[in-house]
Design a protein around this nucleic acid. Structure first.
Lengths: 360, 360
DNA sequence: ATGGTTGTGCAAAACGTTTTGGATATCTAG
DNA sequence: CTAGATATCCAAAACGTTTTGCACAACCAT
């Protein structure tokens, strides 16, 4: 029986809309005030409100009336202290303004809300100090658990030390060597495979692949899946998931005498880099998809709005967040590790206007 | 002197990376355990850690060593209970996956983090019950304040009742009749005005305006500013800020025999509707900006990536979130209402490829 | 010597709940 | 009429901190 994290009794509507009066903030009523005013003990008030033990209906009615009159709302802090849990968890991500993480956050928030949990947003901006600071919240037991969706390498060891002692679930990015952990991630490898098959079916035999940072398992999985399924010649260039990176890599290649080996397609490991590539190609007078096909990864909102609409792999960001959080909470509330402790969520290829049969 | 919300002492790195061992969770060390092990009172431990009163350096060293050995981290709950504040605030928004609110959230998180505050994400999905539920957090004093950036009408009265008693700051959307409130909002009216001037300067004299819901002051302000500065004929249609709405409204008009009165420009109250309009126009065989100019509002990421790149009004979403939060926290920590309790933040017109001189 | 300061540490109260073991009165079954 | 059950409520402990008032010793200046 987890405690309700906060009271939901509606504020009486007919209350005088007092002017904004900072000075007159009086100490909010405590359970003792209610007890005194109702002529009962604090215990009884608690029982009336929680229904934890039966109370005489007459007494209960009196107590409830006093509760309303005084506008009493139980202090959730004291409740949590007593209960040993706060009904709040954290969500640690690098950048909430990135639509992928925003979607993930939405899923996490939904899952948390479903079980009456609050969600603290831990936005790290890829800053290790900031991340440590937030991880401190779990050690001080202010949050009951953490959904971790960051990939900053320096915090890896710190994370390991925590995972044995506190409930932590990984989302989106795996951490090597943590076998027993709770993990929810998209099927990056399958995504790469789908792209490889798609381009191959269109007759492409040579492709340029713009990868993400080597340190990220997810990025590597995309590349591996692609290379394996494409069964053609693949030239790799390492980018950083930013638009400028895609633009720069392609521009450089074009200036060095065209895409290497007569590539007819470009697969970028995320949509942003794909957009950069798109712009670079257009600037060089090439048209997409007639001359070159371009594929992205993520399916961010702009992908379908762009011109041409971008063929890309849809990632279930919402589901990743939701699943990881649900797993974490199952662990936290029931105290048991959920049966399937690793979830790999399906991705989907969205074929749009940026891919076409290979030019001959 | 606000309390540190959570401990930041780094976990010792050289700790044995124990296997994931749920059964062996032992009660974390409390201040009493430390006191006993160090042969001092809990008071002394507290003083050593807080520096609140001087402690003999020899004793202090001993205490610190025990703290490390036991891995003691103060329970922030107990600390907050004693302090009467949690160092956590809430951010209530309708939809985190909307890039505008994601940016706003980022600003809010930054401001909160700067002052050592945590931020609870309250995503309402425009659901009044969910909003009430979250507002309950402030009444139960689990959070020290709330940044409110939603516009759902039914909660208006409820909000009024709360604003006199708890620290609440409004972001993005004003609430009528709450004069003393803390408010940070973009200059919607100026944004509309900029668009009006821009289109007029390009020679446009008749325009279609797609507004947002009438209930939103921000949407009305955009329309008012536009109409006043455009000084031409303006046909208004009411949309709902969604892409389908922009598409539907324009399609309907086109099927009824072209844009009314020979409009040469469309101003949508947000980018999403502008994209809808763009698609509808293209489907009707009209080209943008040669035949019709299109302007949006918000400057979401997709705006610059679209084809043609969308002329739009850049809203300082990040600053709105940051400013509102900073104001709230100034109020919360210092207990005083900041000097300027209303901030109207400047917007900026981004002229891109979707506007051109009026076709004659 | 005396009074005041400084250094050092402790005990107890306070924060606001929930939970547990009784206590008292009333009822039920034999 | 009595033993046991039931209904009703309360006092006290517990959750883990910080803060406050005080005690004691040691030192200083008069």
């Amino acid at each position: 029986m987890t405690p309700e994290p906060y009271d939901t009794t509606p504020e009486p509507y007919d209350m005088a809309p007092e002017p904004y009066d900072r000075a007159a903030v009086r100490r909010p009523a405590s359970i003792k005030d209610v007890a005194a005013a109702a002529g009962v003990s604090a215990t009884t008030v608690s029982h009336v409100l929680s229904g934890n033990r039966p109370v005489n209906e007459h007494t209960a009615a009196r107590v409830r009336s006093v509760v309303n009159r005084l506008g009493y709302v139980p202090a959730s802090l004291a409740r949590s202290l007593q209960a040993g849990a706060t009904s709040v968890i954290g969500l640690l991500i690098p950048d909430i303004s990135n639509t992928f993480f925003a979607e993930l956050a939405k899923g996490a928030e939904d899952a948390a809300h479903d079980l009456g949990y609050g969600l603290i947003l831990c936005n790290t901006e890829f800053d290790a100090d900031r991340e440590d600071r937030y991880l401190g919240m779990i050690r001080s037991r202010f949050i009951d658990g953490m959904v971790y969706a960051s990939g900053s390498a320096p915090s890896r060891r710190r994370l390991e030390a925590l995972m044995g002692k506190f409930p932590i679930a990984l989302a989106d990015e795996e951490v090597e060597g943590l076998e027993g952990a709770l993990i929810a991630t998209a099927d990056h490898e399958a995504g790469g495979r789908l792209v490889g098959e798609h381009l191959r079916a269109l007759g492409h035999r040579r492709a340029l692949m713009l990868t993400g940072p080597r340190a990220l398992k997810s990025s590597n999985a995309r590349a591996n899946g692609f290379v394996r399924a494409f069964r053609g010649e693949v030239v790799e260039r390492v980018g950083d998931f930013k638009e400028t990176s895609g633009h720069g890599l392609v521009t450089d290649l074009l200036q060095d005498g065209g895409l290497p080996g007569g590539c007819t397609a470009v697969f970028a490991a995320n949509d942003l880099m794909a957009f950069g590539a798109l712009t670079a190609l257009r600037q060089a007078g090439l048209s997409v998809p007639e001359d070159i096909s371009v594929v992205g990864f993520d399916d961010i909102r702009a992908a379908s709005l762009a011109h041409p609409p971008l063929t890309t792999v849809h990632q279930p960001a919402y589901d990743v967040g939701r699943t990881a959080t649900a797993q974490l909470l199952q662990y936290v509330t029931r105290g048991e590790v959920p049966p399937a402790s690793r979830h790999t969520l399906p991705v989907e290829l969205k074929v749009r206007g940026s891919t076409a049969p290979a030019a001959r």
